[in-house]
């Protein structure tokens, strides 16, 4: 059995008085892709954002339960959110490259961490962009603004930007929902390339996408985790009636 890199136990999250996550127990093995699916407002994005403490930015959020990354409690008072987010990177729904050059976007994390060696930075830029499957498209204009790229290219540059700080886990929050089908399939191909080296957790609205790329799929509804299993089982032979109804398009 593979090692569990991230574990959540009895995770509750409240926005003010409203309970958005009602006791989630979910663990992730090292490497591979896990998809989180479910109807809008089911808590899957909220759950994803607890995993690198992005919910800290929202006022009035209360979180109880434990999340452990390699055995360390992410919400321990001594936990360093900056370090956590270096190891657990995140890609957002809206491509959000910084208004700088492609090169500067990719090395931003490293440069701020103090890395100055030009050769090393160059190497990281090439490696990250190759991993994100966007190198061939941008290699001739690395020093032009990332905002001039198409949405799909921007999103892959954002993935490269996360890869450059060499995280262990990559969280993706509906990374293709703002993109056209061609760009989406390029992102999917990128993720399939990365699944051997990283632990990838992706929130998606697109069931086909989950069935195409995910090793495991977790179904959320009304703030609860209904079912988690191998993707094949979830789609072909779900154990739970609600999962079946959702998968077969009866609601959501």
């Amino acid at each position: 059995m593979k090692e569990e890199i991230l574990t959540t136990q009895d995770l509750h999250l409240y926005y003010g008085d409203k309970e958005a996550l009602k006791g989630i127990n979910l663990n992730f093995d090292e490497k591979g892709i896990t998809a989180l699916i479910g109807p809008s407002g089911c808590g899957k994005s909220t759950y994803l954002r607890t995993l690198n403490r992005m919910n800290d930015l929202i006022p009035n959020v209360t979180i109880t339960g434990t999340i452990k990354f390699k055995g360390d409690d992410l919400y321990a008072p001594s936990a360093d959110t900056v370090q956590i987010r270096k190891e657990i990177g995140m890609v957002f729904q809206q491509p959000n490259p910084f208004p700088f050059s492609i090169y500067d976007n990719v090395i931003y994390g490293l440069r701020i961490a103090g890395e100055k060696d030009k050769e090393k930075l160059d190497a990281v830029v090439e490696k990250s962009l190759r991993q994100a499957a966007v190198w061939d498209e941008v290699k001739d204009h690395l020093h032009e603004s990332a905002l001039a790229l198409s949405g799909g290219q921007q999103q892959r540059v954002c993935i490269a930007r996360v890869l450059a700080v060499s995280p262990e886990i990559i969280l993706l929050d509906e990374p293709t929902s703002a993109l056209d089908p061609v760009s989406s399939s390029q992102i999917e191909a990128t993720l399939l390339n990365l699944r051997h080296d990283y632990t990838i957790i992706i929130v998606t609205h697109n069931l086909q996408q989950a069935s195409r790329i995910a090793d495991r799929t977790a179904f959320f509804m009304n703030g609860e985790l209904i079912e988690v299993d191998q993707t094949k089982n979830i789609f072909m032979n779900p154990a739970n009636k609600q999962t079946e109804d959702y998968i077969s398009g009866r609601f959501g």
Binding site: N96, P97, C158
Partner: peptide
């Protein structure tokens, strides 16, 4: 705000996000 989230999610501190991402932009 997606720029701020982008910076923070990259493991930049709040101050680094402000001075290195938000201010230049």
């Amino acid at each position: 705000d997606v720029q701020r989230e982008g910076g923070l999610a990259l493991g930049l501190s709040r101050w680094e996000t402000v001075t290195r991402v938000i201010l230049p932009a």
